[in-house]
Design a protein around this nucleic acid. Structure first.
Length: 272
DNA sequence: AGTCGCCTGGTA
DNA sequence: TACCAGGCGACT
């Protein structure tokens, strides 16, 4: 799914179309995607509210509605969010629709049905958001903070990067890319990283996420932005999805291993 | 800390 | 036919 750069790209591509719009109707075609409240309660609380701001936290897109209500959407693996004119035919696998007051609709399409939507009150965050780690692109995400969040943990660095409570928004693609850029092997334990390695990793995390946003995200298969366009960062990936192809740095074949249940790509020569 | 379940579709 | 996939929470 969409990781931080993809969700941010969706946010940027939807902000003009959604800000200030009133939600006039809610349709749910797959009830299990609604969390925390019953579908009926969810529809009742959202209908009639105005979308005041679009925000992102980690991989969540947050619609701040009137009356301090927040509507959270998580695209998981295959979610797509687009705003379309109501008259346009609804694509298959569209499970969630917000009808807006200008004859458009926010449509949530999701082939694998893993996506989630829920509401909460702005002053009482649900646990997933309350426990979430820092935003890696915010100024507050300093080298010092990364060091503090790693020290004392017996945990492989790749698992740490994927843990949303340690750092928000990184998924499998950007974890592999950041570790390559930092020259760090994915199975290294976080408390074995030297100070220069921590510095390189801190820098690499921010670099690959910024590159991802600048390239409007990575489209391996399903990802599309809010206007239905694919990203271009897949053409610039250094190791992810490049098993057997030459490492951009040394030319050795990129390796792929299964680690922690996730495909993990790395250069066995450049990453120590 | 590791595995399973949630789902569907594409590819080997 | 089996395996794999941008995620994550609930289980042992």
């Amino acid at each position: 799914m969409p990781e931080l750069p993809e969700v941010e790209t969706v946010r940027l591509s939807l902000v003009e179309k959604l800000t200030g719009r009133k939600i006039t109707a809610v349709t749910v075609h797959y009830p299990r995607m609604v969390e925390l409240h019953s579908v009926e309660e969810f529809k009742r609380s959202v209908t009639g509210k105005t979308i005041q701001r679009l925000e992102r936290r980690g991989k969540y897109l947050l619609l701040r509605l009137s009356e301090d209500l927040v509507l959270a959407l998580h695209l998981r693996m295959t979610g797509q969010l687009t705003v379309q004119p109501m008259k346009q035919p609804v694509a298959d696998a569209t499970y969630f629709i917000l009808r807006l007051d200008n004859d458009t609709e926010l449509r949530f399409r999701d082939q694998r049905k893993f996506g989630k939507v829920f509401t909460f009150s702005a002053n009482t965050l649900p646990t997933a958001l309350a426990k979430m780690g820092p935003e890696p692109l915010a100024d507050e995400f300093t080298l010092d903070m990364l060091r503090k969040r790693f020290t004392g943990r017996k945990l492989a660095v790749k698992k740490a990067l994927l843990n949303q409570e340690i750092i928000a928004g990184i998924g499998n693609i950007y974890a592999d890319e950041a570790l390559f850029v930092a020259g760090i092997h994915p199975v290294r334990l976080v408390d074995s990283l030297t100070e220069p390695e921590l510095e390189q990793l801190h820098q690499a995390i921010r670099q690959v996420l910024q590159e991802g946003i600048a390239n409007r995200g990575t489209t391996k298969r399903d990802y599309l932005d809010g206007e239905g366009n694919p990203g271009t960062y897949q053409n610039m990936l250094r190791v992810y999805g490049r098993k057997g192809l030459p490492c951009p740095q040394c030319g050795a074949p990129v390796a792929k291993m299964n680690f922690g249940g996730r495909g993990t790509h790395f250069c066995p020569l450049c990453q120590k």
